[in-house]
Design a protein around this nucleic acid. Structure first.
Lengths: 202, 202
DNA sequence: GCCGAACTTGCAGTCCGTGCAGATTTGCAC
DNA sequence: GTGCAAATCTGCACGGACTGCAAGTTCGGC
């Protein structure tokens, strides 16, 4: 179960999925989402249009799927942190790792920018976040020894994802001047402080 | 600007929008989302199919739109609370009001249940939440005197919406036995406490 | 009453998304 | 390495989603 000896079959499927995802993102960035058809995406990924729908149920889903895979790293790396480390500290460390210490991954930036420019993608972006949130919740439950459907891990995962989302949005809005890691840290600080009004803590 | 003397034109539009929304929700609950066509929704609302698309860009959006309008109450009522009341206290009070002191509004329950039964709606549900979150953020910014795009009101709004979402999900998962207001209160307590691990507090 | 603006509608057309059935490929046992 | 069962890919066909456009209809102000 844990060791699934990824056979040729599964590896090929994963590669096809990635090709479709990156092709969708790439084409959408270049020509605008509205002017990209499933047929074009399929052609770029060298599969038939019908096969596209075996992997994704819409082009919007394909565009954000790249981000999902990329962000699943979050859960994996979190699970790899020392078990006695405080949760928030683990999260900060993992986010720093994922942000590459300096510049955020180019593909990820392209994706969030595309969503900004194209509101029709927002629903699917949020759905992708929900998937990540679920992975996060499972890991947090294991770490804290609570049930996966307990309120605490569920809310923590949701709040952390909200913090990342808000911080990213702020970062994009400020023309990406600040360091994204710092903005996320600020957001996590606010969460850990119980969202107290800042004017009370000067 | 503030007083827009809702003329007949605008009232009629609003009524049409509501009719379409409730018709969509009603039909989807009764026949299943997949078996409902835009044509049916339009007919139930007594407009042409083409007009449906003047109001909504998909049937999924129409189904969750009812919830959006209903939840815009949240922001309005929050703005009406005394300005010196702590934000969290205002939120609790408003949520209690909206939940009708005893049973949550039937239409709202129908909607969240439908989303549960039909994952294809989740993206649109989340997008609707994002709209509510935005209204919430504006009100919170006014109350705290911070800029609307400041991190604090933005994150607070997002975290509170996350709490409501997680609490609702839990409540649905527990066969709606507990009192939803209590579950939401628990979630807000966790938020206000900085999401501290519960085992550290007893 | 009358006029401009806003709203509704039908029509035509493109693309989406799915069920199905037949090829093709893969994993596995022998 | 051969053969078989299962998984996957593909083309076809079809109904529905969604949009631009132009004509008709209704509303609000004068």
């Amino acid at each position: 179960m844990v060791l699934v000896t990824t056979g040729l079959r599964e590896r090929k499927k994963l590669r096809t999925r990635r090709r479709l995802g990156t092709a969708a993102l790439d084409l959408a960035v270049r020509h605008g989402l509205a002017d990209v058809t499933v047929e074009q995406i399929a052609e770029a990924a060298e599969v038939s249009p019908r096969t596209f729908f075996n992997y994704f149920s819409s082009k919007e889903e394909a565009v954000v799927a790249a981000g999902v895979e990329h962000a699943r790293e979050l859960a994996d790396r979190l699970a790899a942190r020392p078990a006695d480390e405080p949760v928030m500290a683990s999260l900060r460390a993992v986010m720093r790792e994922l942000l590459g210490e300096s510049a955020p991954p180019k593909e990820w930036v392209a994706q969030v920018r595309l969503v900004r420019a194209n509101p029709a993608l927002l629903p699917h972006q949020l759905a992708a976040h929900a998937q990540i949130e679920h992975s996060l919740r499972v890991v947090l439950a294991e770490r804290t020894g609570l049930a996966p459907d307990d309120l605490h891990p569920a809310l923590t995962a949701a709040a952390v994802m909200a913090a990342i989302r808000v911080a990213t949005d702020r970062w994009l809005g400020s023309d990406e001047h600040a360091d994204l890691g710092d903005v996320i840290d600020d957001a996590l600080d606010l969460l850990a402080g119980g969202l107290r009004h800042p004017s009370r803590a000067p």
